[in-house]
Each structure stands twice: as C-alpha cells, then as structure tokens.
Simulated assay, not measured.
Amino acid sequence: MKVILTRDSVAMGDDMDAPHEQRREFPDGLAAVEVITAVVADGYLPPIAGGRAVWVVVSGADRSLAVVAQEWAEPRPLTDGWGDALPDEGSPVRLHFRYLAQEDPEAVHGRLRAKA
C-alpha cells in the first residue's frame, strides 16, 4: 500500500519544507493503528520543546482517525474501526497530521471522539 504523509508546520522555520510530504510503502491491508504507530515511532513528527505537542491524524477523506500526543506512549483512536484496514481511498492512501500546538490531548481526544 502506498501512503502519502503530510503534516502541518510547527514553527516559522519549519514552514520552508511544508507540507513535509513523504511517500511510504506498507504491506497491503495494514490497519490504521499499525501505519500510524509506525509513522510516529520513526520520528516523522518533530519533537516540541516542553514535550506537549498534539496532532490529529486525518485521512484523505477528511476523516479524523487518531490523536497523537508527544506525552503519550501511543496514538489514541477516534474511530471504532481502528483495527480495520485503512479505508480504500484509491491509491495512494493520504494521511495528514494536523498540529494543534500544546492543547490538552485528553480534551482534544474527548471533543473529537464525541463527534466521531
């Protein structure tokens, strides 16, 4: 499966490379949890001073999939299909990491989970 990653910038100096696009390949049929966890683990998201960065992972269909917080050990799902294969959006799958600065990750997760 081909995946195109993009993310918001975290600071003015980071804007030069926006939208920070990377193209990756993963085995077909991987679940959202597996792909997002792998991307977070390999350092695609920049660390923020103070350790409180919050990101929302959005699919190409503009569906919020998970909240990622620098202070959490793993991403937290926003959908019941977290263990299901990524939605078939055609090829490639697009995932965007929307930066929410240092918002409270529990509040962000609760607010978005209520909308899901």
Score class of each variant (00 low, 15 high):
Met1Gln: 13
Met1Ala: 14
Met1Thr: 12
Met1Tyr: 08
Lys2Val: 13
Val3Met: 09
Ile4Ser: 06
Leu5Cys: 10
Arg7Trp: 06
Arg7Ile: 02
Arg7Leu: 04
Asp8Cys: 06
Asp8Ile: 02
Asp8Arg: 05
Val10Tyr: 13
Ala11His: 14
Met12Ala: 13
Asp14Glu: 05
Asp15Gly: 01
Asp15Gln: 11
Met16Pro: 00
Asp17Glu: 09
Ala18Leu: 12
His20Leu: 01
Glu21Met: 00
Arg23Leu: 07
Arg24Lys: 10
Arg24Gly: 01
Glu25Ile: 05
Phe26Lys: 06
Phe26Pro: 02
Pro27Ile: 02
Asp28His: 11
Asp28Ser: 12
Gly29Ile: 00
Gly29Ser: 06
Leu30Ser: 03
Ala31Asp: 08
Ala32Arg: 05
Ala32Ile: 07
Val35Thr: 08
Val35His: 09
Thr37Ile: 03
Thr37Ala: 11
Thr37Gln: 09
Thr37Ser: 14
Ala38Arg: 09
Asp42Ser: 02
Gly43Gln: 01
Tyr44Pro: 12
Leu45Met: 07
Ala49Met: 07
Gly50Pro: 08
Gly50His: 03
Gly51Ala: 08
Trp55His: 07
Val56Arg: 12
Val57Cys: 10
Val58Arg: 11
Val58Ser: 05
Ser59Phe: 04
Gly60Ile: 06
Ala61Trp: 02
Ala61Ile: 00
Asp62Ile: 04
Asp62Arg: 07
Ser64Tyr: 04
Ser64Cys: 08
Ser64Val: 01
Ser64Ala: 14
Ala66Asn: 00
Val67Ile: 00
Glu71Ser: 15
Glu71Thr: 10
Trp72Leu: 00
Ala73Pro: 00
Ala73Gln: 04
Arg76Val: 00
Arg76Lys: 12
Arg76Asn: 01
Pro77Glu: 13
Pro77Gly: 13
Pro77Val: 03
Thr79Asp: 08
Thr79Val: 15
Thr79His: 02
Gly83Arg: 14
Asp84Gln: 13
Asp84Cys: 08
Asp84Asn: 13
Asp84Lys: 15
Ala85Phe: 04
Ala85His: 10
Leu86Phe: 09
Gly90Cys: 08
Ser91Ala: 12
Pro92Asp: 10
Arg94Tyr: 05
Leu95Asn: 01
Phe97Pro: 06
Phe97Glu: 09
Arg98Met: 10
Tyr99Ala: 03
Leu100Lys: 10
Leu100Glu: 13
Leu100Trp: 12
Leu100Arg: 11
Leu100Gln: 01
Ala101Ser: 13
Ala101Asn: 14
Ala101Leu: 12
Ala101His: 10
Gln102Glu: 13
Glu103Arg: 15
Asp104Ser: 15
Asp104Thr: 07
Asp104Pro: 14
Pro105Lys: 13
Ala107Phe: 07
Ala107Arg: 15
Val108Met: 02
Val108Phe: 08
His109Glu: 02
Gly110Ala: 15
Arg111Trp: 05
Leu112Lys: 04
Arg113Ser: 14
Arg113Cys: 00
Ala114Leu: 02
Lys115Asn: 06
Ala116Ser: 01
